[in-house]
Amino acid sequence: MSVATPPAPKERRSARDSSASWRWTDRLGLAFAWVLGVMFLLITVGIVIYLMVQGIRFVKPEYFVTSPSAGFSESETGGFLDPLVGTIVVASLAMAIAFPVGLGVGVWLSEYGRPTWLARITESTVEMLAGTPSIVFALFGVLLFQHPALGLFSQSTDGVVYGRSFFAAAAMLALIALPLVVANVREGLQAIPGHVREASYAVGKTKIATTRRVLLPAARPSVVTGAMLGVGRVIGDTAVIILLLGATLKIVPAEGPVGELRGTGSTLTSFVFQNAPTGEANQPEKAFAAAFVLLAMVLILNFAMDVVVRRGRRLTWGS
């Protein structure tokens, strides 16, 4: 048998060296992409740092525990306790609707999808929701919740339904978060190789048991990503809040059971809107402070999401 002696390896060129043979158009393209990338980074970081620096100067601990009040100067107008609570309440309510529905729709689209025509319609509907401006949802919500049949979700006086409440705002915000949840759940499930499903069927498990015990746990990073992106969108939305939460800076409970949720209030976004130099209240220091808190919330959310996703992606199958 002829024994092959491997020839001395040729001198290897690293990837960097090999770019020496690039054409000048390629180099220009690379330079262009690089400059744009760095520019984008600088602009984003610039905005975040500017707002952080601006905001942190004005944030005072007592703002977190005092309600807003009427006044002419920054020292008289109180803090943003109500908007902070409002943000948390409205986000929780919206996700309480969007998450289960989105999870269900995502699982159905990825794992069942029968009949096909219905799945296709659902898919494009969800995509349409994702592309709809939130002010449109807000306007729709105003009309919807003013209907007497939905009067129990808000305050009504003498048969006239006010139509603005935490419930109303959360319902419309749920529509904004829904496509993000659906898309991520679906993507996560579809990234699971087919043989993993079959392995579960091949030991006698039903489709439902497989989905619950194998697929959803495997898709957890994507599910969490969807939920957190949804929360991010919800706490950042302003249009729906302004039209549907009643534009009262303080939380004003309605009469009757669960009055707080049927009443009106504000969130950090609408608080910033009101207090911005162009807003009605014009208390820029308050606006910056609230914007800082809002930004911090979103950044923490993103960071948490990153941690969860990173941890989850480490353990997975070959395809």
């Binding site: 043989h195 993993v196 079959e198 392995a199 006698g204 015990r213 194998v214 199958w317």
Partner: peptide, 13 residues
């Protein structure tokens, strides 16, 4: 009649 596949595919548990 159980089956083992080409790719190792333990469940995520």
């Amino acid at each position: 009649v159980t089956m083992v596949f080409q790719q190792p595919n333990p469940f995520p548990m």
